[in-house]
Amino acid sequence: MRRDAIKFGFLFPGLLYLMAMAVFPLIWSLTLSFHRWKAATAAPRVFVGFENFWNIFFRDPRFWNSLRFTALYVALVVSIELTLGLLLAYILSERIRFRNFFRVLFLLPMAAPPIAVAFMWRMLLNPDAGIIVKILNALGVNMVRWLTDARFTPFVLMAVDIWEWTPFMFLGLLAAMQSLPISLYDAAQVDGASRGQIFWFVTFPLLLPIMVTLVLLRAIDAFKLFELVFGITGGGPGTSTESLSYYIYTVGFQYFDLGYACALSWVFLCIVLIMANFLLQRLRKEI
């Protein structure tokens, strides 16, 4: 009996905190999502049923636009980061000197505040004075329209994300590769397998589970894209780089259309939780 009190005493502070600060806000947000509440006007809060959700799915091209952009962003960014990370990890899985130095070096982009990263890149990419534009101009490549032409801006954001998060894939895969059993490699080498064969038939299949986990982790994280949009493009030109988070932020904190923003949040939440569910199932096995 006393033991029970102790075990719940250990668990409950944290659990109650999450209930109060995560579950309760989300439930409140759910109830608000059935209301029309434009806080910028004096109009009172009105219950409107599913109207907000109806509007999201059938009358809001801006929602679909942001969803499309975010999905495209996640798909491209994660696959490029995975490919580059795998390539780098493969090259560096051989004994390389100063390995610890490089490990620290490549952690820098991930550890820096994303908003600082965004502003640094905003400077580098500035069409009038950015160093990258100047270098490209000197090389004869004229690409200054990349922050004003809606066809290019999404890719600029992706490039920054790739800069920031490729090291995550790289260091993750490198660590995973180093924990693979050496005996397998020895066996493969004795059998006369080439470097490429060893990679494709030994390393790659063994890495596959961890790759899936890393991809899910990164995809969920990339889906929440906010700081880079806020700092580099502000969603523009037009709405070409408006991510879901940024769109909800705009609706909630600039138009103060709180009911609609909550409805959007819940749609977003459901999308992310579907992905999170796969990841959680994989991580559960670890503990």
Binding site: A22, L26, L32, F226, L244, I248, L273
Partner: peptide, 13 residues
């Protein structure tokens, strides 16, 4: 799972 949800979803409440 509380780690996974997007911060913007709780920012408004």
């Amino acid at each position: 799972s509380n780690r996974m949800f997007p911060p913007i979803a709780v920012a408004i409440p």
